[in-house]
Amino acid sequence: MDLSAILISMGGMGGIGLIFATGLAIANKKLHVEEDPRIAQINDVLPGANCGGCGFAGCMNFAENVVKGNAPLNGCPVGGVGTANEIAKILGVEVEAGEPLKARVLCQGGLNEMAIKGEYLGLKSCVAAHISGGAMKLCEWGCLGFGDCVSACMFDAIYMNENRLPVVIEDKCVGCGKCAEACPRNIIEMHPISHRVFVKCRNQDAGKYSRLVCTRACIGCGICVREAGENMMYLENGLAHFNYEKWGNKADLPTQKCPNHVLVSLDEEGTT
């Protein structure tokens, strides 16, 4: 092996590479495909790691599917909040389209309200607690209080208060529904922003028992249904429900009539 061998191999490989590079460059121009410029823009703000964490084959594929509407804006777990916001900026109009959804926590049973049945020493996760018979709270329908929803939220729009109940920060909530998916007890529901009144309980036990487990439980007494008038509300499985289609923006809600203060109007309280 003398010096010429090295030079020849360098020259040979470099030459082959150059020829192919030129060919590809020409082909790229000739075979250029016009596509939505937003795909390239979104691809630029993505991390570019092609990790597949979003469930698509690489960042480019994710960008295409975001533009098509098959993928959520915040589908990139690596980029997180920042990337999702930038994608939202690029897509601009589409984010505003339709009535925005907000996550609503339909349980008021914090540590202070709920009856305690014992100590829970297991994994500090709602899913684990739910599978293993439900943490320390007696209510089998209510919030477990370990904050699976908080960790699911990629926009820091939800936190646990000192009463161990999740609180949604309405301004930050983008309505992705990740928290609602994460909650093993389906306490969090996605509601259009025009829904202002809620039955903040999911307890379907008989009234006598539900009164026992939580001071803020819906006991299915039906007072609200009678007060609200025909078809505005209804009882189902011992739980009051709103007929949101009929309700419209009606504001005079029989909140004060509810014995356990389960009915909550956002406009009255100003909280979520």
Binding site: G12, I16, L24, A27
Partner: peptide, 25 residues
């Protein structure tokens, strides 16, 4: 030039370029 040792590198170079071309096409 007795450079058989470079066959893997050069072959892969050819294959990669061709696949790029096919993909574009």
């Amino acid at each position: 030039y007795n450079l058989e040792i470079l066959q893997y590198v050069s072959f892969i170079l050819v294959i990669a370029s061709l696949v790029q071309l096919v993909e574009m096409f």
